[in-house]
């Protein structure tokens, strides 16, 4: 197995740009989904449920929920892209095969894909922020800092998703990852309620999950609260991104460079 540490080169941007060009062709339906889905969530849950809840952890529920959904949506977007789309390009479409006949290496392909996943996360998070601000849920201009944070969240979740793609023999395999990893984080990591309401054991467990740290960064910026432990939260996200990039490169090399 080729365990060499991957090189990150500007060539990765060519892979990123290929995906941008494809996305541009489908821009209308993608943006409709990016705006439509959070709109439904915030309208339905934020207003509907918020009516009964009122405030949560000192915030209007709509604000609490919107900030959680921004983070979880960045996770979801990168996970989807890193699995279904990356797998499609890697296996049935043989796009990586064609790239590997050019000066591009697996290192460049995976770096480009992670950048692209993170870009999509950013687009999705920004769309939700815009919807949330229209609904009056964004309480501070510091919310613009959520945009680069969303990119980091995207990087953090793109890598593990690509690792799954590298193992996968079919699309069905991704159900495991969604059911066992993505959905539990969505439910447990503070998107819908503060994690300190969880049992103590579970509270320490969710501290190792990246979405907890993603939410911890996004919520204060949206809700006009002071950021705490910023270095730790960013560090966890970047740690996951770096480790998973390395793993993804090794595993995709193992799959394609045989």
């Amino acid at each position: 197995m080729d365990l060499r540490v991957p090189r990150i080169r500007p060539k990765a941007l060519k892979v990123w740009r290929r995906n941008v060009l494809v996305w541009r062709k489908l821009i209308t339906p993608s943006l409709l989904i990016n705006f439509g889905e959070p709109f439904l969530y915030l309208l339905g849950l934020g207003f509907g449920l918020g009516m009964f809840i009122g405030n949560m952890a000192g915030l209007p529920y709509l604000t609490f929920l919107a900030s959680g959904i921004v983070a979880s949506s960045a996770m979801n977007t990168a996970s989807f892209e890193g699995m279904y789309s990356v797998y499609t390009r890697m296996v049935p479409q043989r796009t990586y095969g064609s790239m590997l006949a050019t000066p591009l290496d697996v290192d460049d392909i995976i770096a480009g894909e992670m950048l692209w996943c993170a870009t999509k996360s950013t687009i999705s998070a920004t769309a939700i922020l815009l919807v949330a601000s229209l609904l009056g849920a964004v309480l501070s201009f510091t919310a613009v800092l959520v945009v680069p944070i969303a990119f980091t969240i995207g990087l953090c979740f793109a890598g593990p998703a690509i690792v799954m793609s590298a193992f996968s023999r079919s699309y069905d395999f991704f159900n495991y990852y969604f059911t066992l990893v993505v959905t539990p984080m969505f439910i447990l990591c503070g998107v819908f309620y503060p994690i300190n309401s969880l049992p103590a054991a579970l509270q320490s467990f969710v501290q190792v999950l990246p979405l907890t740290h993603a939410v911890a960064l996004v919520r204060p910026l949206v809700a006009d609260q002071p950021l705490t432990n910023t270095g730790l939260h960013l560090g966890v996200l970047l740690f996951y991104a770096a480790i998973s990039y390395y793993l993804a490169v090794i595993l995709v090399r193992r799959r394609l460079i045989v």
Binding site: K11, K14, R17, R18, L21, V22, K25, Q93, R94, T95, G97, S98, M99, T102, P103, L104
Partner: peptide, 19 residues
């Protein structure tokens, strides 16, 4: 392994960008 997301000219242009 042509790129199904692109037209013929785009296939060539994107491939050129890899070089």
């Amino acid at each position: 392994d042509l790129d199904p997301d692109f037209t013929i000219a785009e296939n060539l242009r994107v491939y050129a960008s890899y070089f």
